[in-house]
Design a protein around this nucleic acid. Structure first.
Length: 750
DNA sequence: CCATCCCGCCATTGG
DNA sequence: CCAATGGCGGGATGG
């Protein structure tokens, strides 16, 4: 409102930006370096640029045009528009310029990513607020989420310490772990599932089941996740840990770290974050508020370049979502010695040993005042384990032993197979709007394509470039990855990720719709219903993620949609009849679902999990032959790395890479998939995968199909065994995990 | 219209 | 008790 405001901002920003030089002290407030020139769009522009450049400077290795830069540029454009038009708009800082994101950039620009010594940088809220010319309130917003990442810590009122990204890696590890313990993956699935059902919406009876499905889901609240080593001092000042924004922020991050295509839609996030306290409370206003907060958090996370905004498009329309762009988080196996170098951030650390030691305590503080908030989760873990045990014991069916089964969220499980992005999307250079932009985008996306997948598949037919020659190399899948790009290609690391996602390849005509979905859903009884799926037959766009520059369509995970998808090409005759029956069958299936549901009920969260042995990471997608096969099968499946681009035309087939493990596990697959294989004529995806896989690996001749277990075939509800055994497996592994951790701990201390 | 999210009121905290 | 914090959601804004 006041012109002074702007002027002040501009100089303060200009002068504060020497973080690289003297990180040791809070930059003195230079009062009159710049004769605060009157506010003009131009000056503001300058400010923005200057704000940006040091940022960029400080992270040379960064991708050229990161969100960071682009964001600023965007603002710049905005301003330029103002300029060109009429600069009469002098007084309108324009909402964007006051955005939290921008503010956050300014804030971050003041401090180095990796301060040389942790203790040296202090932040005085007052000061910052003043210098940045914002309401103090806003600073709190920023600082809170920074604190949730342990990039800062509170020292006293008005006083924070700046740690930069030194702790980031550890924090993320911790968060991921907690997220796993919280079964966030499952919760996400749950939400999506329900969402789907809702949409499926047969007659008015959807609410009834919704109510209880979450019932078992009493998730004890977890509180702020502390980083060991950061807690000192905290006790006195940090007593109030229940600050929701911080916790919320952590949880939000967890969602990313836990879900496999690291994309989280606001909606899902909000639901989960709400669902934790109060279960089903589709309170509209509460939801709305949650979303609001998430935007706030997302903004600063974006500024930190940990996430970026994308869109998940499905038949309903596009939903806002965010994609993790931060460092890959490895399950923390390596001890404190080896700093897991994040892919994104240069690990300049060399002398930060003190701080590291400080943090290196252990992730599971066992006693003393270290009893920070870590405990609740542990407790919860135990609780949930016991719970599981109980459930299992009371389970109606005796568990079937599945050797390789593993829970999704056991990241520790050595599925050595690296996942390499499977599909590459080639941009159609058909249309043009803004030449330059276009150029930029396409080049960039091409780049990303390259990164995510060794080869770009221009068209389906001539697999020329493609690598039919590319044999499914079992042992080392990684080789293919271009090592260069940092932030975009975290893939390089052997992706120990637990949950692997799969993509369904659609018929060429459906084009631009590649979907990833998480395996766990495949075993759901729902597929049947799906297949009968109403709009599925023609539904073209199932799910896609669009980047800001809506050029790239990224695959995302939405089990439902994707399932719907595979129904597509009605090849067999039965399909038609099936279609006729759609309606009635649908109802029938609905019942089926319910039945299943109730059965499920005895089983905790009741999600059927895809044993990890089923992981079928894909190296890459290649020629069209396979595509044909897949299409015929109505579904192809491959695992995706986070980003996948689909071409409007090209159906990108795949190479499946199998590890011995998965092969071993394969037979089981036929078992577990039958539940969906009878009612619907459509072939069950799982068996498709199996067959495809086996064929591909040469275990069975092409053309031969491994039939689903004939006996079980007519048992609609048959997933229980897996479920059970699964849970138990899960439990065991978790326990094992815990004990391992404890051992580690002891080891370290000893 | 609707996705975003700025703004600042006002309840809590904590010093 | 008062300043520091930080829920919270109305309503503005840009696309």
């Amino acid at each position: 409102k006041t012109p002074l405001k702007q002027a002040a901002t501009s100089y303060s920003v200009l002068t504060q930006i020497q973080p690289d030089c003297q990180p040791l002290t809070t930059p003195p407030k230079p009062k009159e370096i710049l004769p605060a020139d009157p506010w003009t769009p131009t000056s503001n522009l300058k400010m923005l640029i200057s704000a940006a450049s040091p940022e960029i400077r400080s992270r040379e290795q960064r991708r050229e045009l990161s969100n960071n830069a682009s964001e600023v540029l965007q603002a710049k454009h905005c301003l330029q528009e103002h300029l060109s038009g009429d600069e009469y708009e002098k007084s309108q800082p324009s909402r964007k310029e006051k955005s939290l994101g921008l503010l956050c950039h300014k804030f971050l620009a003041r401090y180095p990513d990796y301060p040389s010594t942790a203790e040296s940088n202090y932040i005085c809220l007052d000061e910052v607020a003043e210098e940045l010319n914002v309401e103090r309130r806003r600073i709190y917003d920023i600082v809170n989420v920074l604190e949730s990442l342990h990039m800062v810590s509170r020292l006293a009122k008005n006083r924070y310490a700046w740690h930069g990204r030194h702790n980031l890696s550890k924090t993320l590890q911790a968060l991921k772990k907690v997220g796993e313990e919280n079964k966030y993956t499952q919760q996400i699935q749950m939400i999506k599932k329900r969402e789907y059902e809702h949409e499926f919406d047969l007659d008015g009876e959807r609410n009834e089941e919704m109510a209880r499905s979450f019932g078992s889901n009493e998730h004890s609240e977890m509180s702020f996740v502390e980083l060991p080593g950061m807690e000192f001092r905290a006790a006195s000042v940090n007593s109030r840990k229940d600050k929701s924004l911080r916790v919320m922020s952590q949880k939000f991050v967890m969602l990313f770290l836990v879900s496999t295509p690291q994309i989280v839609s606001l909606e899902v996030a909000a639901k989960i974050l709400i669902g934790e306290d109060q279960l089903e409370d589709l309170d509209k206003s509460k939801f709305k508020t949650k979303i609001r907060r998430l935007y706030d958090i997302a903004n600063v996370l974006s500024s930190l370049e940990l996430i970026k905004k994308v869109h998940v498009t499905e038949e309903r329309g596009r939903k806002p979502a965010f994609k993790w762009t931060g460092p890959e988080v490895l399950p923390n196996i390596q001890d404190t010695k080896l700093e897991t170098t994040s892919t994104t951030c240069p690990p300049p650390i060399s002398e930060s040993i003190p701080s590291k030691e400080q943090c290196s305590k252990n992730l599971f503080p066992s006693r003393g005042k270290q009893n920070f908030t870590r405990h609740p989760s542990l407790i919860k873990l135990v609780k949930s384990i016991e719970n599981d045990r109980r459930k299992i014991q009371s389970a109606p069916t005796s568990p079937v032993k599945i050797s390789t089964s593993t829970d999704q969220n056991l990241s520790a499980f050595p599925s050595k197979m690296a996942q390499v992005p499977a599909i590459a999307k080639h941009q159609l250079e058909g249309q043009s709007k803004k030449a330059k932009e276009m150029k930029m985008k396409s080049s960039r996306s091409a780049l990303e394509c390259n990164l995510s997948s060794p080869e770009v598949v221009p068209k389906p037919e001539p697999p020329r470039t493609a690598a039919p020659s590319q044999q499914p190399a079992l042992p080392q899948p990684l080789g293919v990855c271009p090592p260069s790009h940092s932030s975009v290609s975290p893939v390089i690391l052997p992706h120990t990720h637990s949950g692997v996602s799969y993509a369904i390849y659609l018929h060429p005509s459906q084009a631009h719709t590649v979907t990833t979905y998480s395996p766990s859903f495949m075993l759901q009884p729902l597929p049947c219903a799906n297949v009968t799926g109403i709009k599925s037959i023609n539904s073209k766009v199932l799910n896609k993620v669009t980047t800001e520059e809506e050029d790239n369509q990224v695959a995302t995970d939405d089990p439902m949609k994707s399932l719907t998808a595979k129904e597509r090409p009605p090849i067999k005759s039965e399909t038609s009849s099936q279609r006729c029956l759609k309606r009635s069958q649908a109802l029938q299936e609905n019942n089926l679902i319910k039945r299943y549901r109730s059965d499920e009920e005895s089983l905790d969260t009741s999600l059927t999990f895809f044993p990890s042995g089923y992981l079928i990471p894909l190296t890459q997608c290649t020629h069209g032959n396979k595509a044909g096969f897949l299409n015929k099968e109505k579904a192809g499946i491959c695992s995706l790395q986070h980003t996948t681009y689909s071409s409007p035309i090209a159906v990108t087939p795949l190479n499946i890479m199998l590890s011995p493990t998965s092969i071993a596990a394969a037979p089981v697959l036929s078992n577990s998939c039958l539940n969906s294989s009878n009612t619907c004529s459509a072939q069950n995806p799982s068996s498709s995968v199996l067959n495809f896989t086996l064929q591909h690996v040469g275990l069975i001749p092409a053309g031969v199909q491994v039939p689903a277990n004939p006996v079980l075939q007519h048992m609609p509800v048959s997933s229980q065994p897996e479920n059970v055994s699964h849970s138990s497996e899960n439990m065991n592994l978790q326990e094992e995990k815990v004990s391992k951790n404890i051992l580690q701990l002891l080891d370290r201390e000893g």
